[in-house]
C-alpha cells in the first residue's frame, strides 16, 4: 500500500526461555494505512501484544523489517527514530499500573509536553493539559488536574493514559486491551472517545483485544486480524470477517463466543474442536499450526505443508488450505 504509515515485513520475534527459543511472533506481515483502524484479536499467548510492541518500537524484532513512513525503523538515525517513537504511542492494558502513583495528573501530563517542546513553560503546559483533558472527556479539567491516580476510577485512569499518549501529537496509537479492565457501562464511552480521535484528529489505530464483539463494534469500518500461535492467520475488512470467516480457527472462535442475547447464544451452531489443548510455543506442530485442533483438517496436507496466505476475496486473506473451500460451502448455504 502506498499510503501505509506502518508496515511489518515478515516480522518474527523470538525470546530465549530456559535455553530454548520461544517464537512469540512468526512471520507477520501487516500494512496499516494512514487514518486506518486495524484490530488484532486472539487468545492469550497468540503474540498480539508482542506485535503491538514491535509496531510501537518498544521491541526490536529478531527478523524482518518495521517500516514507518517508508523508512526502516531499526536503520533510522537517532533523530528520525525519536520522531518515529513520538509519532507512535501506546496505551497499555492496565490503568492501575501504567500511571505513576506518586505523580499528579498535572505532573504526568506536563512531563512529556515540556520534554518534547510542545509547551515552553508551565503556563503553556497547563493550558495544553486542560485541552487534552477536555478531549478525553475528563471535565471539568480543574477537578482532575491535581489529583493522583488512586483518586480516579479505572475508566478515568484509562482516559488519563490516553491523554498522556496524546501529549506528543501522535499520528498512530497502539491500544493494547485499552478497555478490557473497564466496566461495561463505561467501556463504550471510552471507545467512542477513541473513535472521535480518529475522526477529528486523523489518528491511525492498532487496537489489540481478545474480545471479538468489541472489535466488531470498534473497527466495523476497518480491518480485523486474527492471530494464533504467533501467526496472523486471517485478516479482512471487518464485515466480511464476521460474516464469512474463512480460517477454521476464526470460525471456531466466532462460534464459541457467548452472546448477550439468550435466544441467539443458545441457538448458535458450535464448532467442535478436535483438541482443547493449545500447543506449546516451544514445540509448534508441523504444517498448519492449527491442524491438531482443526475439525476439518486433511491428513497428509494440513499436518505436512504449512499453508500460504490466500486471498479469499478482495483484501480478505486466510492462511488455511481449506479457506476457499469453506468459503464455497458458506456461499452454498446462504
Amino acid at each position: 500500500m502506498s499510503n501505509a504509515i506502518v508496515q511489518l515485513e515478515h516480522v518474527t520475534q523470538r525470546f530465549a526461555w530456559r535455553g530454548k527459543a520461544v517464537q512469540a511472533v512468526n512471520d507477520v506481515s501487516l500494512s496499516i494505512a494512514e487514518g486506518e483502524i486495524v484490530c488484532l484479536v486472539g487468545e492469550s499467548g497468540c503474540g498480539k501484544t508482542t506485535t503491538g510492541k514491535i509496531v510501537a518500537g518498544l521491541l526490536k524484532p529478531t527478523e524482518g523489517r518495521v517500516v514507518f513512513e517508508g523508512k526502516d525503523v531499526w536503520a533510522m538515525s537517532p533523530e528520525e527514530f525519536k520522531h518515529y517513537r513520538r509519532a507512535v504511542q501506546i496505551v497499555h492494558q492496565d490503568p492501575y499500573s501504567s500511571l505513576n502513583p506518586v505523580r499528579t495528573i498535572y505532573k504526568t501530563l506536563s512531563a512529556p509536553l515540556l520534554r518534547h517542546g510542545f509547551a515552553r513553560d508551565n503556563r503553556e503546559a497547563l493550558a495544553k493539559i486542560r485541552e487534552l483533558l477536555e478531549i478525553v472527556g475528563l471535565t471539568p479539567p480543574a477537578e482532575f488536574i491535581n489529583k493522583y491516580p488512586h483518586q480516579l476510577s479505572g475508566g478515568q485512569r484509562q482516559r488519563v493514559s490516553v491523554a498522556r499518549a496524546l501529549t506528543v501529537n501522535p499520528r498512530f496509537i497502539v491500544a493494547d486491551e485499552a478497555v478490557s479492565m473497564v466496566d461495561v457501562s463505561i467501556r463504550l464511552s471510552l471507545l467512542n472517545m477513541l473513535t472521535g480521535l480518529k475522526e477529528q484528529m486523523g489518528v491511525t489505530f492498532l487496537f489489540i483485544t481478545h474480545d471479538l464483539a468489541l472489535a466488531k463494534y470498534f473497527v466495523w469500518e476497518g480491518r480485523i486480524g486474527v492471530m494464533y500461535l504467533g501467526q496472523l492467520v486471517e485478516i479482512s475488512p471487518t464485515p466480511d470477517l464476521i460474516e464469512h470467516p474463512s480460517h477454521q480457527y476464526t470460525q471456531a472462535l466466532l462460534s464459541a463466543i457467548p452472546e448477550a442475547d439468550p435466544n441467539l447464544t443458545r441457538n448458535k451452531e458450535r464448532i467442535k474442536l478436535r483438541s482443547l489443548d493449545v500447543p506449546s510455543l516451544l514445540n509448534l506442530p508441523a504444517g498448519c499450526t492449527f491442524h491438531p485442533r482443526c475439525p476439518s483438517y486433511k491428513e497428509g496436507l494440513c499436518d505436512r505443508v504449512a499453508p500460504a496466505p490466500l486471498e479469499v476475496t478482495k483484501e480478505h486473506f486466510a492462511v488455511c488450505h481449506l479457506a476457499t473451500q469453506s468459503r464455497a460451502v458458506q456461499a452454498g448455504t446462504m
Binding site: 463504550l188 467512542n192 464476521i242 442475547d261
Partner: peptide, 24 residues
C-alpha cells in the same frame, strides 16, 4: 436496559450501542 444496550454481540445484525453516562 442500559447494560444490555452497552454490550455488543458478534453474530447478528450490527446495532447501535449506547453507554450509560456517569459512574457508580
Amino acid at each position: 436496559l442500559g447494560l444490555i444496550k452497552a454490550v455488543p454481540t458478534v453474530t447478528g445484525a450490527f446495532r447501535e450501542l449506547a453507554s450509560i453516562p456517569g459512574s457508580p
